[in-house]
């Protein structure tokens, strides 16, 4: 029988990515750029929320958006048309998430102006993007009313890595069995530190409070 030689490795698969992400974060800190990683399921209203949010923030700070999708550039075009800010499309080449290396490449493709806030719209998916640290300074996710108030129970990791949880489409709540209070409890169970913002991206309800919270985080990031 053949002899077998064993080489012990004991290395986390995410170790290199985590290191790259930390490196990217400290570079962004040095440049005063706040990178927000926005995640959600497909169809939760990410792009509409972004447009509404950017139109509130763009007078105060300089913003750019990186749209990540498996294919197409419809989102990047839509954002640019609706807000006038720089918006680029990243293709993940079939992958279900972005990692720190891909995020860095995306940032290098933005024009070299001094941005205060870069928003990364991650691939619509509640599982994989939560696993991979992109190097962002904060993680936000959108949960929409039709998806149900039990989403935090089904996707624990996503909710535990998010600093900001946006509950979108709050205007259609009367037509669904969505209980806002129960949803908030489910979020806090996964992450007691999460900040929750109920909004309606289409009519603008609640977007002011969200914009203010993001603005504060950007200022804090730049001041420390």
């Amino acid at each position: 029988m053949d002899k077998v030689k064993v080489i012990e490795i004991k290395k986390s698969v995410f170790e290199d990515n985590d290191r790259e992400a930390d490196q990217l974060r400290s570079e962004l800190k040095g440049r005063g750029v706040f990178l927000l990683n926005l995640m959600s399921s497909p169809g939760s209203g990410k792009t509409t929320t972004l447009i509404s949010l950017i139109n509130k923030l763009k007078e105060h700070i300089k913003i750019a958006v990186m749209e990540a999708d498996i294919d197409s550039d419809v989102d990047a075009v839509k954002i640019k048309e609706a807000t006038g800010i720089e918006s680029i499309q990243l293709h993940t080449g079939g992958m279900c998430h972005l990692d720190a290396g891909m995020t860095r490449q995306g940032l290098e493709n933005l024009s070299p102006e001094g941005y205060d806030l870069v928003i990364l719209e991650n691939v619509g998916n509640l599982v994989c993007p939560a696993e991979f640290d992109t190097g962002a300074c904060a993680n936000a996710m959108i949960l929409s009313v039709p998806e149900g108030d039990d989403k935090p129970l089904k996707y624990p990791l996503m909710f535990s890595v998010c600093d900001i949880v946006i509950i979108n489409k709050i205007d259609v709540q009367p037509y669904f069995t969505f209980d806002l209070e129960r949803c908030e409890q489910n979020v806090y169970m996964r992450n007691p530190k999460a900040k929750i913002f109920p909004i309606c991206a289409l009519n603008g309800d609640g977007v002011d409070a969200l914009a203010e919270a993001i603005l504060q985080r950007v200022k804090l990031w730049q001041s420390k």
């Binding site: 030689k5 064993v6 490795i9």
Partner: peptide, 8 residues
């Protein structure tokens, strides 16, 4: 994590 690899 990758625990180990084997080589014949």
């Amino acid at each position: 994590e990758i625990k180990e690899i084997e080589i014949k």
